[in-house]
Design a protein around this nucleic acid. Sequence first.
DNA 1: TTTTGAGTTGTTCGA
DNA 2: GTCGAACAACTCAAA
Length: 484
Amino acid sequence: MTAPSLFWFRNDLRLTDNPALAAAIARGAPVIPVFIWAPEDEGDWPAGGATRWWQHHSLAELDSRLRVCGSRLTIRRGPASQIVPELARETGAQAVFWNRRYEPALTASDAQLKTDLKRLGLEVESHAANLLFEPWTIQTGGGTPFQVFTPFWRKCLAQPEPALPHPAPQALPAPAKWPTTIPLDQLELLPRIPWDSGLRQAWRPGEAGALDELQRFLKQGVADYPVERDRPDHVGTSRLSPYLHFGEIGPRQIWHAVREFARRTAPREGDTVGEPYLRQLVWREFAFHLLYHFPQTPTAPLREAFNAFPWQTNRRALQAWQRGQTGYPYIDAGMRELWHTGWMHNRVRMATASFLVKDLLISWQEGARWFWDTLVDADLANNTLGWQWTAGCGADAAPYFRVFNPVTQATKFDPEGVYVRRWVPELAKLPTKWLHQPWDAPRSVLADAGVSLGKNYPRPIVDHAEARTLALEALAQTQRDKAR
DNA sequence: TTTTGAGTTGTTCGA
DNA sequence: GTCGAACAACTCAAA
């Protein structure tokens, strides 16, 4: 009887295009798929509530998919440095397979574990699955990491095309005896008080959900993406971010599906259907590249001048922002969409982030923490890049004078107010003309719409024009201090 | 080494 | 109402 192999599932909860899993199967020995729940291994970034919810359902779906292949998922509780060697001993496994992770704490612990396992006489194989280009493979001509997106993008395009995705295995060879598993419920990933109904309505975690979403996007979204992606009131984006985060779909699958779609629908030379979307996919690559090369950035600004920025501590304002009670309907709509569905349209993420950082002068780290806890797609690399970009302290950041105007953004990207009415129902009856700035509405209009400012909807917690001036002064000061 | 061109997503003001 | 310029200066990447 051949000794089995362990396959350790992490952020690659899929059977399709899973190279380490394919390699484990190809080894010819029985394969034992394992998942280890170990929040303590995640360092300063243990999974937030929305992430835990998704994780639970994703694992359930993965287990049923594995069962179709004659296999099953073994679940254990961490830390992984202990559990993996323990499981190897228990099952008599000779080899361990996994796909690589790229977050600083995790690359370090994976490297350590690899060394430890080899010392125990085990074979260990790690594979590339979750990025198109691993962070160390893309370099400037000078051999340094990129800090500006466009040259990074061009360099990526100059690489050989990412490999074609592996097909999903039909079957996994089962061991003679399965190790014991913890029941999924015992991980207690689901909320005790049931606040997750909005999430359940909005999402179907798991590989099948991911593939359906990709098909939906190819059919209805990708061609109009350059315009439609800016409309939070439409479904114009891919909505693949949570699936990508958990690895229920791999970037290579998306890359080649989009390329193939573009070839079929626009066979002309030089046509760029799909390219704007692929560019966004490469922004994700850029985020991982930056996090890998600048591992301090989840908590520290890349531009050190910002260490001296006079961020305010204001619990009441922070809370108003978190709860969608700022008095700016577009901002509140976004924050409530986030709370309700675990996701927010990217257009609105920028506006809400800009509001926290520039209107309230609350640090981007506070915002990043809140997003981390509430997003189903919470991802250290993307979250860090996004917040530092908005705050103006990151790589390739927005110029400091770029302050989003919550009313202008709303009228531009939610022109009929569909988005705001969906998430801020207390304003639903306001005419569109006043919807995005109810404080300017005539009293009679407010009364007719049943809106009583300060009672059933707040007055603005700051005056945007004043806040903008203050922010610009503080930011200009930071620039001057640095220059000195 | 030095130089040059360029850089995701905006807003406001004044002509 | 529309449009272009100003809002800074810096740093990156490549020639």
